[in-house]
Design a protein around this nucleic acid. Structure first.
Lengths: 194, 194, 194, 194
DNA sequence: TATGAATGAGAGTTCATTCAT
DNA sequence: GATGAATGAACTCTCATTCAT
């Protein structure tokens, strides 16, 4: 039993490390041997854990998506003001170390989802999760049309993340942060304002 | 000379078809033989045209980026009102057949740019091109902070394109179009309004 | 002790089932996991029973050879006329269900015997056993040169079995049966006849 | 063109050598690398020549079957008497160097034919070829029921070949030769004799 | 200018086997 | 006595690439 638990722990660690590899190299270019190098876990053990190379990649995507969501939830726990909470979600973007990994993995998932129906379902479900999370804050802040607004907000976040992660020299993380705040204020409307 | 011209024409055709292949399969998964199948041009001939497989992919990216820009310019030629012109650029998204190809290739370029400095330079330059194009319209429309606004607008476009191309059932092309229009009106500000 | 007996029973059952697998797939292509699938007995347990994969195959060959011999003896128990007994042995060929399995396993054994001295010894001993069995009937029937004739008879049986098992559409089991009877009568000679 | 012809020659040589390897190791156990070792031709070149490993094996089977037939025809060219001709065909068995290879390959083909419909068709066609060849001699010798007799003769040949190739110490090649002659005379009947 | 032949490098996958329980 | 976890070895196959024509 202890070995089984140890195994589960090992698997999760490997998943984490594999995520870094996938983010760095791209999913298609991630070989078993790359993950082996990064983890010290032998190739056949990876296969024992995950099955096919594709299975491993998919496991990485799922794991990363979960972690991402969890991290944001943790941040939100400390905040109450809807505006602040929204900004916290949004600046998830400019945030901590490892956030590049997150965004890159998101793009990798998106690409995989384009070709694999199973992954597509997962990714669309995640998408919906984020929309709902944001829409709840939009509604809580008393703004209009929560779902439509949430879509715009999420689009803005994603769309800004791309150049940031690519390292656009014209768009520092700080600048992106400010832009995002400005954009948010533009997108959020109260009917009373009209 | 006529053969050279013929060749150049052939190369361009191949480039176009290869773009479809790359969009459909992803750059990493695009083999010479896939392009051969799609074009009838033998593998060795592809190598003769482009060199390395990577060279071919990069040529595809460049070609696609140019075509994309050209197409928008063609559309803009008929319009004069800055608002309409902005919307035309933006709805590039929901537009013509083959626009999925465009967006997929853009993501593929982005990914390649993450790892290849040369491609990164190209992609960032394209990015700048789009910003400037949009900023010019923003300014022409009398709106504030053209460059910052342009970044937000472009981010919104990109961010909305992702779920659309992925085929999110909650976001039809028509719905995306409306959302985009609404989002634009939120992001554009006139100092006189304050 | 009861567990030992139970084990021995299990082992024999497994051996029987494994024989079917080997006949169906060929010895080289028979993996532990194939036998696992056919029996429900885990791979490690198979190894515990038999040792190496090769050991298992050899055990299968021995078991099949014994069973084969036993079955013919059972049939013979009911017959007394040498001619009938010979025919009974010979038509072992066209006989009961599972006889394909028998012949296929015989070919597999032969092949293995070509490369493994231990198996070769077994197979040659079996061969001798059949010759003696047949020779005894030849002698009992008052025919000449029992051993030489026995070799010819056995050769005829084996040689006819091959196309039958392969499913030659020109050679139904019934036709093979008749041919065999005709062949036997040609091969059996009495010195008084000359 | 010269290179193409050289290629074709090379391919045939390789096929010949591969036949030896398959006879020695068995088809299932024949790896590309074994053929590489035997021929000096690189693994990928083998694949270029033949395709899949299975394709190579099948090519080996076909080639061996043809060669076998051709060799017998050559021998027959010098003989006119039907009895001699029959014996020549039969003692194909005890004959020249390399005849072990022939018989082993025949068994390998048979096994493969059991599982592959394409190979089965080939093997059954070969079978028919031999029957017809023998039946023609039977008829030419004025013996009865050529086809039935041919089947028996061929069965006898095959059935005797098995222990000979296995190296049964009780059955030298010379002994097999005599047995075969005796067996033939038993199987051949003239209606006038009855 | 264009193309077929040949080949090396590298990857995924299968499988028997060892070790611990 | 019986079984699951982990792992190394081996093999097939795909693919880009080089060379010759």
């Amino acid at each position: 039993m202890s070995s089984r638990r140890r195994s589960a722990g090992r698997r999760a660690e490997v998943l984490e490390a594999a995520g870094e590899v996938v983010a760095a190299r791209g999913a298609d270019a991630t070989r078993f041997s790359d993950v082996t190098e990064a983890t010290g876990v032998g190739v056949s053990t990876l296969q024992y854990y995950f099955g096919t190379r594709e299975d491993m990649l998919i496991a990485v995507f799922r794991h990363a998506a979960q972690r991402d969501f969890e991290r944001v939830r943790e941040r939100l726990a400390a905040l109450t003001d809807p505006g602040e909470r929204l900004l916290a979600i949004a600046t998830h973007l400019t945030g901590a170390v490892g956030s590049d990994t997150t965004w890159r993995l998101w793009v990798e998932s998106w690409r995989w989802a384009s070709r694999d129906p199973g992954v597509r379902a997962d990714v669309l479900a995640d998408y919906r999760g984020w929309h709902e999370l944001i829409a709840a804050e939009v509604a809580a802040g008393g703004f209009d049309e929560p779902m439509a607004t949430a879509r715009l907000v999420l689009a803005l976040i994603d769309g800004l993340a791309l150049p940031v992660v690519l390292g656009d020299p014209d768009l520092s993380r700080a600048a992106a942060h400010e832009l995002l705040a400005a954009g948010l204020s533009g997108l959020l409307r109260r009917s009373s304002q009209r």
